[in-house]
Design a protein around this nucleic acid. Structure first.
Lengths: 140, 140
DNA sequence: GTATGTGCAAACTTTTTGCACTTCG
DNA sequence: CGAAGTGCAAAAAGTTTGCACATAC
């Protein structure tokens, strides 16, 4: 799921955002760091190449990227906020013991849910997106 | 979903916790406040009757109650942590516009998911619980 | 009486903000 | 050039901690 700096720049351009080194690095970081990094993880990663980026900037850029739907915030029980690239629809496996989050993609399941809610709907609510949080333990 | 102070005390006793006024009020608050209250909401509610409870105490008690599975933390995108009573399994409707969270119970859906995962499983992962986050808009 | 729980205030972590300066297009 | 983005440092939220005191059992 790594992307090059070039690809990162294109993503920004497509959304009508100005391309800055900070933005492309942050976008690159969220795509490269597979483990749903926190702001802190992102800052650490970026400072390897870019030692002077300011924390405030990272938060501002992350907000912008979330707004423009290039990345998403991931809900967690306890931790600080985490981020992930916007890629194909997927669900999350949460490990209660370790706090690890892993992606889970399952098109058959998605179709099943889609069918189910097409038939039933939820009165008073317009569904835009369904995400499963699957809680449990990794066994390997 | 309101519970009386007596019921709150019994819940604490069942879990082997000492019954204190702070604990019963906090438990009562989480059950009474339907909207998945934050620590702050809980504190405000309790201070109506109990004006001198300390913030630190509320956080400590909430942690204890979560540990003992009397209440649960609810994942949110942006806000501070929210809480809800442990009641029958249910899912959550999240309104992107307003931040409102509402419970959604659907046994037919639960059976469907249970069947699906009984057949398929997830390699390397032991499922304990499946929660849907249904994102969208309330239309009423 | 003793283990457990609470109050308090300080500290910590994470995130936000305001404004002068810089940069992208 | 002008609008938009960044750095910085301060402050706001939200939560945790340590310890003396109080309370439930």
């Amino acid at each position: 799921m790594k992307i090059s700096v070039e690809e990162a720049k294109n993503l920004l351009l497509e959304k009508g955002l100005k391309v800055t080194p900070q933005r492309s690095s942050i976008l690159e970081a969220v795509f490269s760091l597979e483990n749903h990094p926190s702001a802190e993880g992102i800052i650490d990663f970026i400072r390897q190449k870019h030692p002077h980026i300011a924390t405030g900037t990272v938060y501002k850029v992350l907000d912008t990227l979330v707004d423009k739907q290039l990345i998403k915030r991931v809900k967690t029980d306890r931790d600080s906020m985490r981020y992930e690239p916007v890629i194909e629809d997927h669900h999350h496996l949460y490990c209660a013991d370790t706090g690890k989050i892993e992606d889970y993609t399952d098109h058959e399941l998605d179709r099943l849910l889609e069918d189910y809610f097409r038939q039933h709907g939820i009165p008073g609510f317009e569904i835009q997106e369904i995400r499963l949080q699957i809680n449990g333990k990794f066994t390997n």
